[in-house]
Amino acid sequence: MSYIQNLIAFFEDSSIADSIRENDTLFPTIESIHVVAICLVVGSILVLDLRLVGFASMNRPVGRLTRAILPVTWGAFAIAASSGFLLFISNATKYLANGYFDAKIILICTAGVNMIVFHAISAKDLPQWEKQKSPPLRARIAGALSILLWIAVVACGRWIGFTMQEL
């Protein structure tokens, strides 16, 4: 535990974290990039989720849609995660003490597990059903779960802003 605390202290005391804390425009600028990236992550993954649930893009085979959309999602996720990391280190201790921040991280991990489980297990027989307008129940559940998890991630993100102690 103390190793993790040291690591967090190392980032929080770094000169980058200090600039983000002290500079008036740096934090909002990184935050804006974070919002743009998150919007693209959530919006693009929703395209896939709605296909899995059977609501949209029904004429597109699931495999093809996945290959088209995931590079966009991952690219945006890389930007969202790195900008999020910069925002986090600017006040790491206070963010960690915020329940909504912790919940947001856990929810993102849960969304990741949901995706891995779907690709590794539920989508093993993908070629057999990927052209069906309404995929099998396990795929619809994975899609619905993903929608709910990402809505919760965005909600937690917004709630962090209202529950952080004054900086």
Partner: peptide, 24 residues
């Protein structure tokens, strides 16, 4: 107290949909 964050959450989720659709 919950009304403004809730409205902002719905607002951002809708922004995500509009923005992603246009960008795609």
């Amino acid at each position: 107290t919950w009304i403004i964050p809730t409205l902002q959450t719905i607002h951002i989720l809708c922004v995500a949909i509009v923005f992603s659709s246009a960008v795609l």
